[in-house]
Amino acid sequence: MERFRRFFPPGWNYRMELRFYGFWLLGSAVFSLQFLVKYCLNYQKLFSWRQGELVYNGGGLIGFSQMLEGCFLGFWILPLLMLLAALFHYFYYYQGSRSIYLIRRLPDRWYVFKSCVLLPFLGTVLSLGLQLLLTLLYAICYVVFAPKIGG
């Protein structure tokens, strides 16, 4: 975690912030598993037991996008939190002193960007990337395990 220190303002509690992002991403991924629950419930409605046999009732699963609705809420909230974090990072340079005077004298013209914005930006990209990956996995599940009509 030490290597991430340079992406935060000096003295900032970066470990706590990184842990928060980690737990939020994990929580968002777990929250998205409701897709599988919806899928199973929907799948079950397509079949019923008649005289000891599992019989297909006809019809199909609800649309993939409909099934996915609301599953990625956690992933959508995270970029908003990241934006807030970027603002907090910047205003940190005005808290307790005016360290912004030092920051504005640094030869590295990208220091404010690197210490305030870069990690929240990368976190947002990671969040969207994870969301995309999960969407792909769920799409594969949806297609592979959907009952074949007529089969």
Partner: peptide, 21 residues
């Protein structure tokens, strides 16, 4: 500019250090 700003330093009564460090 950023190329030569390192040749200037500043001590202010508002303080420009990082309080947590």
């Amino acid at each position: 500019s950023r190329k030569n700003i390192h040749r200037l330093s500043f001590a202010t009564s508002e303080h420009s250090f990082f309080p947590g460090l």
